[in-house]
Nucleic acid binder design. Structure first.
Lengths: 344, 344
DNA sequence: CTTCAAATTGCAACCGATTGCATAAATTTT
DNA sequence: AAAATTTATGCAATCGGTTGCAATTTGAAG
């Protein structure tokens, strides 16, 4: 046997004088194989340095044991946490994952979906890109009965299971907190309103204002890309508003941090002149000054739940089509950037 | 034909009255197939919704068209940039990537290497974990002639190609900069000295001091995990040193940011009382205050180069064993945290 | 010592694409 | 028009593991 040649079950079968079928069964602990034979097979496999060939196996089984992950971004603490949760569960269950990220481009998301489809993943876990216009690229999966779990960024009335936080509540809570701190003129900086996360937070913002008998003015909603350039622009707009807002609820920590810099360079004191609340509890929250009040989002847990649901479905232990939405709890973390009054 | 059944080249062959071999060749643009036949095959493939079966193909070709990526961490702007560079090149070349990260655990790295080995990746791109003790888990790849490219965190005298920056020079440069700014007592906070990146930076630090006729005291080298807790601890140590250091070169931006917080809460002014230089040019550099001077590290480029080398080798266009190290340029970005004198 | 059931193991046909070699068809040359 | 090329296509084996069913062995019961 050439040393660079791969060992197969046929090699093991030959040296042990059994059939390849027996070896195959023995390696996967099939109940019909006697304990003694199993042991012999396992030992010989180890001795010869056998490694099973996934392709042959997948080809025959018509299963890939692979789950496709569609992400909108990797430069995000939250997303990486979700990924860690997904990995934990999938690894335990013996699934591989194929990660594809779109860098927030809907177009790339479509291409990635296409690619995962051709790779024949057994299931999909997805969070939509910033500007994904519709879900038609997911239809091909549904048609082949390939299950999909969406998380975080979802389409509200789509098919498939969704794992999300209550963005409405979080938005309401953040706004209420600013009002409780004595803010009179609160602004909300947010993203694309066709994305559920931003739409719901904005709705929570609006309702919190109305419930507190504050005027709701559409001009108080600043819709941006939440990137550096746009955030700086909006921050400057806010600086020039008359009267100047005294509270900002920003739908992303990064954007909030950029705004804080702008406000500070303009000489404003945070939170005295203007209080700030972010969203996501990213690492930067505690590195900037003052530390940023934010909504904490349990990433790892979200990933674990999404993966668990999908795998249960794939293993036939649960039917995904019966579940619609799973809401994970989130909470407000109060830090210096918004704390004008001492906590009672 | 059942609707949920996959279309194969046999189906296409049958409807067109040609052989499967012709279809196979036609689909991959084999020169022996006539243009007309190719067109017919392509059209029919599209019409029937054919998608090629990678497993069958890989099984036959004994190639996976997959590259394994071993990373020490994903919570890092730098690493994600490298990943983006790798992805760009591998996608163009028609390779898949399998990403495994060890969360800085050498033990997990070994398990990941094992896993990628069993998945039969065609090649490996790796950056070592914080505490990887040796490279024995890479031997199995060498034995099967599976090429490996290391980047950033490498073992200095290992086999295989390395793509790195000149950490010595960067360390020297950072230290020289602090000295140029008038610092008299400079401290270096760094990580595990068996990792090349930290060792070389520390060496550059030392030589810069000596070349400037400054005393080099091993106590000026603070070796830590560079995580939050350790960084805070070291920062407090530094605060209590007599005489107190007036310059800190920290081998990571995150750790530098944590130190800055500690120093600022203690009432020190940055850079007047203590100047700080980080490493990596992470996003936080420009969000904290004062903005952090750092060493910029071209992540995307590094990933592109590592991937390109590997793929050229796999395609037989270059021999990886002839290349040893590729040094990518890095540079010092001066910001407020260290700038005591105006730039001339 | 049979007879029958249970426990093991083997046979052989898949899964779908690839490719060396042979053959057939089209084109050119003599 | 026959022979020699060139161009296209087909045949059939191969990659390695899986699994329904048949066959054999073992053990227990009568």
């Amino acid at each position: 046997m050439r040393p660079d040649k791969e060992v197969t079950i046929y090699d093991i079968a030959r040296t042990l004088n059994v059939s390849p079928a027996t070896v195959s069964r023995g390696l996967k602990d099939h109940p019909a194989i006697s304990t003694k034979t199993k042991r012999r097979i396992l030992e010989k496999a180890k001795e010869l340095g056998y490694r099973s060939n996934n392709f042959a196996s997948n080809l025959r089984k018509q299963k890939t044991q692979t789950i496709g992950i569609l992400l909108h971004e990797l430069h995000s603490h939250f997303i990486v946490s979700v990924l860690a949760g997904i990995e934990k569960v999938t690894t335990e269950a013996g699934y591989d994952i194929l990660i594809a990220h779109s860098s927030e481009s809907g177009q790339k998301e479509v291409a990635n979906a296409q690619n995962l489809f051709h790779k024949r993943v057994d299931g999909i876990i997805a969070s939509l890109a910033f500007d994904t216009p519709d879900l038609s690229h997911f239809l091909q999966f549904s048609e082949k009965n390939i299950p999909i779990v969406f998380f975080d960024r979802v389409e509200e009335d789509s098919l498939g299971t969704k794992v999300i936080i209550d963005n409405y509540k979080a938005g309401y809570q953040a706004t209420q907190h600013l009002l409780d701190q004595g803010c009179k003129r609160v602004i909300h900086i947010t993203g694309n309103q066709s994305r559920n996360v931003y739409k719901q937070r904005a709705k929570g913002f609006k309702d919190a204002l109305l419930d507190n008998n504050q005027e709701y003015n559409p001009a108080n909603l600043k819709i941006t890309d939440l990137d550096r350039v746009e955030s700086e622009k909006v921050a400057n707009e806010i600086l020039n508003m008359q009267p100047r807002p005294d509270g900002v609820f920003c739908a992303g920590d990064f954007s909030a941090a950029v705004c804080m810099r702008v406000f500070k360079s303009a000489g404003l004191r945070i939170p005295e002149d203007i209080a700030i609340v972010g969203f996501n509890n990213d690492v930067i929250c505690t590195l900037i000054e003052p530390q940023l009040t934010t909504i904490n989002y349990p990433g790892v847990e979200m990933g674990e739940i999404a993966a668990r649901i999908l795998i249960n479905h794939l293993n036939g232990n649960a039917d995904i089509t019966l579940t619609n939405s799973i809401i994970i709890k989130s909470d407000l973390i109060v830090r210096e950037s918004s704390l004008r009054k001492p906590i009672e």
